[in-house]
Structure formats: C-alpha cells, structure tokens
Simulated assay, not measured.
Amino acid sequence: MAQRSAQYTRIQDFDPEHHPAQLRHLSSVPGPWESRVATVNARLLTIQSSDATVTGAALLTARSAAAYVKISGILARDAATYEELVRAVLDYAKEKDLACVKWEGWTEEPWLADLAEQMGFQSLPAPRGTADGSASIPRFGYVHWLHPACYLPTAHYEQSENFTCAAVAALAAHGETTSIATMDRLRSVELLLWRQATNFMACEPVGLGLAIAERWPASRVQVSLDTDKPVIVDYYPEAERSWRGILQAESRRRAEATGLPVTSKRMEISQIHEAVSQSARVLLLVSLRQMLGYDVPHWILCHGTAGSTEKPVIIIDDSWIDAPSGESWVDVTCLPIPLQELDSMSCLEADGYRAALILTDCFSE
C-alpha cells in the first residue's frame, strides 16, 4: 500500500452485494455501480484515510484475456480525490504492464474532458448507433496508452445481427463504419455484404475473401487457411455439415478461377503482428471462449500494435459487445490482446486450424 498524504490506496475484488451501499456516503451510485456492474474481472480501487474512511472509489473492469483496465465509474468527495483516483488507476495499470487504461463516462461535463486531456487520455471516436440517447450507453470514452500505439482510429459499430461480425470487420477495415453517412445505409451494407459472403449463418474465410475482393477491388486480399477441410462446421449438427462443405468447395473453385490468393501455410501470430505494424488489416477468426466464456466462432479486425517489449499486443476492433457482463463500446474499441492470448483463441475446432484474411491497400482509390 502506498502512503499518500496520510491516505492509502487499496485494490480488492468488487462485491456488488455490499460495496455500492458502503459507498453511498460519497454520492449516489448510478450507472455501472448497481444496474450494469461487470462481475467478471471487476475490481474496486479505493482511497482511504488512516482511520479506514473511504474518500474515493474507482470501479475497474476489463474483458478477459485483454491487456487493459477500464474505469467504469468514479465516486469521490472532491475534485482533488477524483484526480488522485485516476492517477492511482494509471499507476496500477503500469504495475501490471498493461497496454492502456480506458475510461468511460455517463455524463458529459466539460471539466471531465479537461481532466482527461490533462492526464494524457485521448478521446475515442464516438460510436455509430448511439444517437437514441439511451441512458445505458456511456456518453464518452477515452484511452490512455502506456506504451506507444499505432492503430486505425475508427468509429465503433456494433453488429446489428448475431451473425454479421465478418461483414462489420471488413467494413471497419476499409473505414466504412465511419464514412458511411447514415445508419440505415450502414446496416443495409452490413447485411448485403454478409449475404454475399455467408456459408449460412457464418462466413467461411474463402467466401469472405471473395466478397471483399468483389466489393473493394482496389484492396489486395489474401486468404490464409491451413486446412483443406470444411471449416466452421463442428458447431452444427452432423446432418447440416455436408452441404456447407459443398458450398465451401465452390468458394475454393471460384477463388482459383478469379485468382484470389489462398495459401495453406499457417499464419503465425508474429506474422499478424508484423503485418498490422506495416498498416495491413487482418480479419482473424477466433473463438470467444477465452474472452467471453462461450465457444462461438467470431471474426475480429486486427489493425494495430502496442504494448511493452515484454508484453506486446495486437489491437483489435470487436463488433460484439457483451452488455450483460457490463461491457460497452469503450471496451471493444481499440482492444489490446496479448500475442499469446490471440494465438490460443485463434485455434479453431478440433483440428486447431487458423483462418485469416490479410488486407492491404485498403484505402486505395
């Protein structure tokens, strides 16, 4: 525990049954403290006086298998304690060698924006689709990188259907989750691209590569898939696998006929790190087991690098927000994942294959 002007900081697991009531003397406990608390990985950082009186508290959450911590809420008796809490969170993240600290806020107050800027936080692009004014959505988000970071700043867009992750990842890679003007148009493009690429309901890698190459002919697309068997089929009953295999065989035939590069050599995570460090975008198929606890195939966009020499990370954008666990768009925008975690989660099904699409020249005219 660090002594600070007769006060000290304490880190403990957050207890949603007891801690909110114990903190009411600071102020009301709205937002994530009660109604949206993330019980997975939730921690409480408090500043206490020598007689154990809590003068400020920060609720910290994070997605599993990721290298960040998020300030989900702050309660403090005064502005000085508020600032001290933020500094304590930054110190905590540095001790853990995390890539960044994120900060979500539920009210837009000018002094908060000023404080965030003074303490080295950068404003995250406002997400698409939050214009309804819903109280369940954070009004602002910030990120403070603790090591140099290079990535694609793009407005987050939450996939509108359970099965459209691949389409959203491709749109984000090309900047279109930001550039498409209206939400109606963005959702239409999302669904049409999914329909073009899908193997019902998921998008298999070769079919996805063909759809991307057709929609963005200026982009160079290469598919890396180290198996010749049908993929994303173990998740379906035996009776529903064979026809999906036939469709995937047709995708491979079309790829050969059109010249879409498909390599059977496994793409290592170090190669993905190298590719995105040179401005490529990589669509990677992962299981959500490590991050969210359920084994579902899911496409993410890898678009940047950060982290320390000892703990490098790949920065991803994930179109899925696990709201029941307390996540928001702040979590899944520029989300840093350690290389070893990404290596593990991108080994799919019984064969442990890896599926990746490498996109270059994404913004060429």
Rank of each mutant, 00 (worst) to 15 (best):
H18N: 10
M267C: 06
G31P: 00
Q271D: 13
A239D: 10
L301V: 12
E109F: 08
P153E: 11
Y294T: 11
E268G: 03
I321D: 00
T46E: 05
A155C: 07
R241D: 09
I71T: 07
D114I: 02
G31Q: 04
P338K: 15
A62M: 04
D184T: 14
A197S: 15
V313T: 09
Q12V: 13
Y8G: 03
D114Y: 08
Y92V: 03
E240D: 14
W145E: 06
S364G: 11
A126Q: 12
D78T: 03
V231Q: 08
P261H: 00
G120V: 10
L292G: 01
L98V: 00
S134W: 08
T178K: 09
I246V: 13
D331T: 06
S287H: 06
D91T: 12
N199T: 15
A52P: 00
A249E: 15
T46C: 05
S328Q: 08
V101I: 06
R253W: 08
L44H: 10
L342R: 12
L191Y: 02
P324N: 04
S325H: 09
V262R: 02
P148E: 09
G129E: 02
V296L: 13
E274G: 02
Q278F: 00
G31R: 07
L339G: 13
H18E: 11
S27M: 12
V29Y: 08
Y353A: 03
N41G: 01
A42R: 06
Q290A: 13
N41V: 00
R253L: 09
A211S: 15
R254P: 04
Q222A: 13
S188Y: 06
M119R: 13
P138K: 05
